[in-house]
Write a protein that binds this DNA or RNA. Structure first.
Lengths: 301, 301
DNA sequence: TGACTCAGTGTAGGGAAGCTAAAGGGTTGC
DNA sequence: GCAACCCTTTAGCTTCCCTACACTGAGTCA
């Protein structure tokens, strides 16, 4: 006794003849007849009886046909379940971001998407080496990752949308001699001690570009990933550092100066597996991320 | 998306691995994997994801698995529907009887089976030629039919239970000369005019047996099927008649005398299609018919 | 680090299930 | 009484699902 047989029985109850059922289900009357026989085989009482040259339901058959409606209803509900899940606007959306993106995007996003009726955000910080960003899309619906402009793009397995092309400036203490220049070139900064990220993390390529453009090796004095820590170290005179122009809260004792002559710009991308944005809630968050990026870009000072 | 695939998805949610599902459903892991792939094909979002070397449900998969429970519940209910229909003690039971059986059985049956909680009787009278009793089982759950003892039995298509073996007596007016005899033989009645049933109806064979035993043809004066009418005709001097001893209400001006020398006895049988007594309500009525037959037999006067 | 085990997936092939086509039997209506 | 209609039966074909087996990737132990 399966769904199809129940369906046939129900249709027989409503249409009143094997031929009509066959037409409705787009098969031959023979197929209907055979399925009815199979269904009957498992039953202790007749489900159908002849009425003239027609075949109609017995009381037992009618009882079973009524139960068949429940089965079809449940199946229909099941079919809609995934669609509803996909379309539900208030589902949970997980979003990971590296530290500086998190500190810039998270507060704006939380304010833009207060929970009721909309996506429920599940935020997380994940600061990992460049190569480890794509695998994060297994755990999170959306992953904010960064890479240098003109660096090799992300692998095919993930989809990437660029949210922000953010300039990288040179950070220095407010009382540093270079502060007087409105714009720096590699030659200006090549002799200074530098504070850089650990190997394998983005931004290292730009440091190397500066060295190349200046024609000399740089003195890499310290290795610090976290920009808040970097800022304190720079302010204390530990050296110069590349810092993103928009996504790091300005330190009171620090000055940022733009750098010319090298490509000093990073992309902040949203990475995700293509199937994730089948969910409406995820699409909503992605749209909002783009809007938030606009806000961040325009709050340039 | 069918029931089996939903079942597999649900089991995967509960058991947590393809192998476990395969064991539970008595198939190979390959079969499970293939079915999951087919189910997935129709869905816009992943239903499953790898967790280490195991396969588990995604949120969407879990939502669908929950819906699958409803489907299984409905199917289970459907499976029980027929069984419940069969076991329900208060279903409608249709019963047909030829006239004299109806007048004897119906009132006792109606008193023995008052509706609430028990079978709901749907009674009907059907007085038909011998050969037409079996087809009545198409329309009625139970059919009371009669045939002469030693007459050919009912066809294989119906099941028959004998309720009563009822003697056929000779009915005569109370002032008839033969009344003085306590017991008659064929020779006693062969010269009298007879009132018989129409050709094709039971009892004719007994009339013929009397003629054979007496060695002469009988004078068949009248042809009347209905015993109440027969009784009036006999009382008015229209002739002798065979009348059932128990199932006809005694006429005040009539006397019944038993007949020896010929098999003058009819069977009152309950006929039915075997599948009909799958229903509890029908079985209840059949049991009650036997009990009522006992009462009728014992109320011999 | 490498060998081993375990879980899931892909592929080829066999068997079952369901369908169509065609023929047959019963019922109805002109 | 014949034609039309409806359902059923049978044979044969297609489709689907399962098994067997090989393979890949993940975890585990020495």
């Amino acid at each position: 006794m399966d769904e199809r047989q129940l369906r046939i029985l129900r249709e027989l109850g409503e249409l009143g003849s094997v031929t009509a059922v066959a037409e409705a289900l787009l098969v031959t009357p023979s197929a209907i007849s055979q399925q009815l026989r199979l269904l009957q085989r498992a039953m202790p009482v007749p489900l159908t009886e002849r009425q003239g040259r027609r075949l109609v339901l017995t009381d037992a058959g009618q009882a079973l046909a009524d139960a068949a409606i429940e089965v079809e209803t449940a199946l229909e509900r099941a079919r809609h379940t995934v669609a509803e899940f996909v379309d539900q606007p208030d589902g949970e959306v997980s979003l990971a971001a590296f530290h500086s993106a998190g500190s810039a995007f998270f507060p704006l996003l939380l304010r833009a998407l207060p929970a009721p009726g909309g996506p429920q955000l599940a935020l997380a910080d994940e600061d990992v080496p460049q190569a480890d960003f794509p695998p994060l899309t297994r755990q999170y619906d959306l992953v904010l990752a960064h890479r240098l402009e003109h660096a090799p793009s992300w692998p095919r397995t993930v989809t990437a949308t660029t949210l922000l092309r953010e300039p990288l400036d040179v950070a220095m203490p407010a009382d540093h001699p270079l502060v007087v220049k409105r714009r720096l070139v590699p030659r200006d900064v090549a002799d200074q001690p530098w504070i850089t990220v650990h190997d394998g993390f983005p931004l290292m390529a730009t440091i190397e570009a500066i060295a190349t453009a200046a024609g000399q090796r740089l003195h890499l004095a310290h290795r610090i990933n976290e920009f808040a820590v970097v800022a304190e170290a720079v302010a204390a005179g530990g050296g110069l550092a590349l810092m993103p122009r928009w996504t790091t809260r300005p330190h009171p004792d620090l000055v940022l100066r733009p750098l010319s002559g090298v490509r000093a710009r990073r992309h902040i991308d949203a990475l995700y597996r293509p199937e994730r944005i089948a969910r409406k809630a995820v699409r909503t968050v992605l749209t909002e991320l783009n809007r938030v990026a606009d806000v961040i870009r325009r709050q340039d000072r």
